[in-house]
Every structure is written in structure tokens, then in C-alpha cells.
Design a protein around this nucleic acid. Structure first.
Lengths: 368, 368
DNA sequence: ATGAAAGCGCTAACAC
DNA sequence: GTGTTAGCGCTTTCAT
């Protein structure tokens, strides 16, 4: 049996986490007969009230706590609620309160472990303050991202967009549609939008300095999505670093990295900078297939310090920013008193085994 | 100016991830002053009705489509809706319909790329049928899982639990609390619960047969969480395979795999079976650190065929089940006509570079 | 301390 | 074809 990479398993999911349904604006008309418009036989507050022989108002008072109720009544109500297994209808609560105690998070790719980390981070923060977290993956499609965001905005008290790819005008629309909008790794000139961004400019300079100190001169950068702000920041960083860096179109996924290697090699680099660690994993895999040894033949670096980056072979040199801190800062921005200023987070270079001095000079670029 | 009515003809269905809040049953009392009980200044159907000089019922008719309305009125309404940026309040719709057009998905670990895949799979299926998907990560905590499930159950039309770790009684409670409950990789004797499970019994036998055919005799199995049904299935598979397999406590994460290697090695195995691919990645990493070559010194296999398993060094031999099929089947179970029988899915052995004949006999177990 | 009643935003039944 | 009305389940006045 062949030791093969089974690409067929990796076929593209068109609309993965968020998909558009070409439907009419509202869903199918309510199908239920009128008699059954109620919420699927679950106990309501009325059931509890009847059983405890009090008014619904009292039930509500008991269950929300902090209201003046006589202990006997309170006990009766709690017992009744327990008995019928009552739980309040969240839709009704939301409707009444005008708040769902929920924030929405949109990420370009749920399959990217780095985003999964960020997700956990802010979910934990939000949970600590009594909020749910809703997350949508957009499969790197800016249009889908826009629609997801607009839709989510109606549900949630606050919206967090991670590395949004949509256009600035669209982003402004989303800002208008949201109670509160916070961005990660994107800036937008808008009065009510907060943001926390990683200083990729710094990160790239660090990486370049590291590579330069090792003696690398021919460096290829595997570009991320062109609509990604963070990619633009990296590119600016390269210009500032003053190293000649050749750019090769790539993308943001493992597969993208795998696929971009061959073209990158035509430039005969001594070092490769991947858009992020996820991409870098794909790069390492392809290089291994080609029999190119890292770091002896070629150095590879990533950006992000994803959880697996310490576990690749060799370990990945990368630029690390704490996802915990990212989550914490993002959550701060949802506070009513938060400023809308942009928070800058810088990370640090993490040197692992994927970088070294160029061992042998590969043949010089073809004559030109 | 009124160019098109893009959003009115299509609804965006979002896949969402929800983290549940470890809180008391009710949230803090409404803080808003009475005057501001309304939904944060967003346009309501009344605003549209007023502007278009029609009744709210007519607005609703126009926007839901398929209802008899005169073209002129329809245009006026659409223009008005456009102008004020009206979007229906989802909470109100949900309350009225008694259905949120949403399913909930609970996974033990969002950081496990395999679950991310499953997630994408069922989200795509659900979206295709016009349903949102809510997902909660539980960090492998059964209690949190239970609370998330119970909480989510109130919101969603159907609940999907991936590899739930909670106890059977708790699971039954969740079943009672849900409109519809579907399980992945867990079985529960309950009349209304559907399930789709991977035949790990078969998978493990395949893996064992493969290892046996290579000549392996001393095999260590790195156990998953003891509360995982799928782990129990694997263990049963080992017994059926008739190979002596030594069990070592491990877990389900990359780090768990990394940490369990040292103890596993004390048994001087020629092959290691990891609970899943995620664990196996950690294993490979630790083995590399220790200077143990895979597969020459030691063969390693995983289970799941996660996306990265083709990209490790060496590629991971594993047991593959299509996440797409898993998602599709799970979604089937939400259909009103679905049976509650358990669907069994079997996968296939995928042989990559991490398994080979034992190259050299390591020293025999110390005398005892 | 408790109950009655209003109403969150929306849609379906029932007039006309 | 369109308006009026009722009510989804809940919380909060405003009475008592």
C-alpha cells in the first residue's frame, strides 16, 4: 500500500460553516397548525405558576432572584419549576430584554488551529462575564463573511470579527448594523469600532532580522489572502526590513502552503516565510516530499505560533503572540466603558529548528 | 438609488459556535431603564409600516414573499425597508415560530482539527437546508458539556453531541430537554435519540491486523478519556483482535500524547496506537525529541485521519472515516422522518509512512 | 409581598 | 389586497 497523501479527502467544502441559502427572505411560513404554535410542549412559566398557585410575575421574581418574595412562596415556586422541568424561553427573554447576552465571533477558517485558540480565549473571557459566544466560519469568502456578520449582528450584543477580509465599506455597514463591533487584526477608521491588532510589522522585522543574522539573502514570502489586513502589514514590514523578499501568491491554509512550494522554489530561496504557521505546516510537508531538508537546504518560518508549531519536524521558528492576551484585550473592548482606540499587541520571535545558516549555496539565479 | 434588493431574496445561514455560561439559571436582571427596553434603536417593522403608510401585516407579507400584495405597495414597502435598514428581529421570529431554524453542536475540543472538520461538515449540510449551526466547545469537561447541552437545547431545534463524555443519566436528561437529540460516536438506549457512530471496533482490528502483518508483537495503546464511548469501543476492538496490547493512560489532545510517550516507552513497545491523530502528532513530536525514529525504531498509528495527518513526518498511518459522510448522516437524523436507529459507519485503513516492520528488536523486557 | 396587565417585535387568522 | 387583532413567553410597572 502506498504511502500517499490522499487529496481526495481534502476536497473543498464550498460553504462550510456559514453557507448562504438562496431562499426567500423569510423561512417557510409556519407549518404548524395554529393550535400548536407553542414551543414544542416545553413547560412555560404559566405551568409553573399554575402548579405553585401563584402568578407568573411571582414565578419570575423567584427565579430571577433578588426580589422580595416570601420564603414559603419561593420554595413552592422552585419546587414547581423543578417538577415540570421549567427553563425559561431564551427567545422570549431576548425579545423582552433587547439583549441576548451573547457575542458573535466570525473567523475566516475554523480549521486553522490558531483561530480555534483565539476562539477559546474570548469564549472563556465572555463566559466569565456571563455571555455566550457564537462563532461563524466563513471559509475565507469575503461575501459570506459580510452576510454572516450582518446576520449575526441582529442576534448578538456585540460582534467580534477576526481578521475580516471584507471591504472597508462593507465593514462600515456591519459597524452600523451592530450594537458594538470589535475587530482583531484589522483597522477601520470609524468612531465606534474598537480593535486589537498584532504588530506584524514588528513581527516580520524580527523574522527578517533573524534570517539576515543567519546569512540568508534570497527570501521568498508566501503571501496570504490579498484582502487580509495582516498580510498588508507583513508586506510593509518587509519593505521596512530592507531585505529583498520575493513574493509568491499562496493563501492561508495548509493546502495553500503545500501547493505554493513548487513555485516558491523556482526563485531558489534560502529561506521561506510563510503567511502563517498553518501554511508553514503544508510547506514543510511538501518540502519533505521533494527531499529538501529543513533547515539545511532551506529555512522556513511561520507567523502565529500555533499549538502545533512546537510539534512539527523540525519545530517551526515563528513570531508568537499570546492568544490568551488577544482574547482578553478583545473582550475588554466590549465593555461599555471601553475606548475605541486600537490596541497594539506585539509578540516575540520564537526560534525553533526550522531555521539555520544556509548550509550550501544553491546555484545562483539563472542569468538575466 | 434603490439598486437592488440583495438581502431580501436570500437569507444568510450562519454556523455558529456557542460557549455556554457556567452561571446560575437566570442572568442578571435587566439593567436598562424602562424607557429603553426597545431593541437598541434598530428599526422595527412598525417603522417600515409607518414610512410606507401600510400596516405591519402588509410589511410582513411583502418581506416574506409569496403573499398576495399589489406591486405598488410592495415596492413602497421594500423602499421603506431599505431606507431605514430594516431587518427582522430574530428573537421575535423565533418566539413566534417556536423554532429558531438552528441546530446546536457540542464538541469536546474545538482545537482538535478532526472536530473542526466534522463541524464544517454538518454545518454545510444544515445550511443547505436553511438552518444555522451553533457550536459549543467543552474543553473535555463533562459537567460543562452537560450544562452547554441543556442550555443550548432551549435555543435550538435540534442538538448534536459529538462524542459526549457525560454520563448516561445526564444524557437522558438532555434528551428530554431537547426537541431532537442526535449523537455522534456514542450510543444511548433511548427511544427518541438517533446516533451515528464510527465502527472503531472494526478500525482497531484493521490497525492491529496491519501491525501484526508487519510483525509487531509488543503494542501499547495510548488511551483516550475514560468517559469516551469511542475509547471503550477501541478497547473492545483490541480484545477482539487477540493481540496483547498494553494500555497507558493518555487523553485526547496533542499535549496528552506528548506527555504519555515516556511512560509508554517503559513497556518497550515496537508499535504505539494513539487514541486519535491529534494525540499521535504529539507522540511523534516527543519521539523525535528522544531521538527515536519512526517507523524504524517504533511504529505509530492514529485514528481519524485528521487533515494534518497526511502532513506529519512521517505521514501517519490511521483509520479514516469520511467526516463529510459523518456530517451528512448526522444531518439525516434530524429529519422529522428519520429513524432513531444507530447508523454505523466504517472507514478504511490508510497506510502512510509511520508504520513498518520492526527494524531491530529492542532489548527484551527486563526480567521479572 | 403579590397579582393584573402591558408590551417586547413579529406573523397568522380573520375580517372586510 | 389590506387592515385589525391576537398572542408567542417572559419581565416589569403599577396597583393593591
Amino acid at each position: 500500500m502506498a504511502d500517499r497523501i490522499r487529496w481526495k479527502r481534502e476536497k473543498v467544502y464550498i460553504a462550510v460553516v456559514a453557507a448562504i441559502v438562496p431562499r426567500t427572505w423569510s423561512n417557510d411560513p409556519v407549518r404548524k397548525p395554529t393550535s400548536d404554535r407553542t414551543s414544542a410542549g416545553r413547560a412555560t412559566i404559566h405551568d409553573v405558576a399554575r402548579l405553585a398557585e401563584v402568578s407568573t410575575a411571582t414565578v419570575s421574581r423567584v427565579l430571577s432572584g433578588g426580589k422580595p418574595v416570601s420564603p414559603q412562596v419561593a420554595d413552592r415556586v422552585r419546587a414547581a419549576a423543578q417538577e415540570v422541568g421549567y427553563r425559561p424561553n431564551p427567545a422570549a427573554q431576548t425579545l423582552l430584554r433587547g439583549s441576548s447576552q451573547t457575542i458573535g465571533v466570525v473567523v475566516p477558517d475554523l480549521g486553522n488551529p490558531y483561530f480555534a485558540e483565539i476562539l477559546k480565549g474570548i469564549a472563556a473571557e465572555a463566559a466569565g462575564d456571563g455571555h455566550h459566544t457564537l462563532v461563524a466560519g466563513t471559509e475565507e469568502d469575503p461575501e459570506q463573511e459580510y452576510r454572516s456578520a450582518i446576520e449575526l449582528a441582529r442576534w448578538v450584543d456585540g460582534l467580534l470579527l477576526c481578521a475580516p477580509r471584507m471591504s472597508a465599506p462593507q465593514l462600515k455597514e456591519v459597524a452600523e448594523a451592530s450594537r458594538r463591533l470589535v475587530l482583531i487584526n484589522r483597522v477601520l477608521r470609524h468612531p465606534s469600532v474598537g480593535a486589537v491588532v498584532v504588530d506584524y510589522h514588528h513581527g516580520v522585522r524580527e523574522l527578517c532580522a533573524h534570517l539576515a543574522s543567519l546569512g540568508h539573502e534570497r527570501i521568498v514570502y508566501l503571501e496570504g489572502p490579498s484582502t487580509a489586513w495582516s498580510d498588508q502589514q507583513r508586506q510593509r514590514g518587509f519593505r521596512a526590513a530592507g531585505l529583498p523578499v520575493t513574493r509568491v501568491a499562496c493563501g492561508s491554509s495548509l493546502r495553500d502552503g503545500y501547493a505554493a512550494v513548487d513555485e516558491a522554489l523556482t526563485h531558489e530561496p534560502t529561506a521561506l516565510i510563510a503567511f502563517n504557521d498553518h501554511v508553514a505546516v503544508g510547506v514543510l510537508s511538501r518540502l519533505r516530499e521533494l527531499g529538501i531538508t529543513v533547515p539545511d537546504d532551506l529555512s522556513v518560518v511561520g507567523v502565529d505560533d500555533a499549538p502545533m508549531s512546537a510539534h512539527t519536524d523540525p519545530g517551526l521558528t515563528t513570531y508568537a503572540v499570546s492568544t490568551v492576551e488577544l482574547g482578553r484585550q478583545a473582550w475588554q473592548h466590549f465593555s461599555p466603558t471601553a475606548s475605541t482606540a486600537t490596541t497594539h499587541l506585539s509578540g516575540e520571535l520564537v526560534v525553533r529548528g526550522s531555521t539555520a545558516r544556509p548550509r550550501r549555496r544553491r546555484t545562483v539565479k539563472p542569468s538575466r
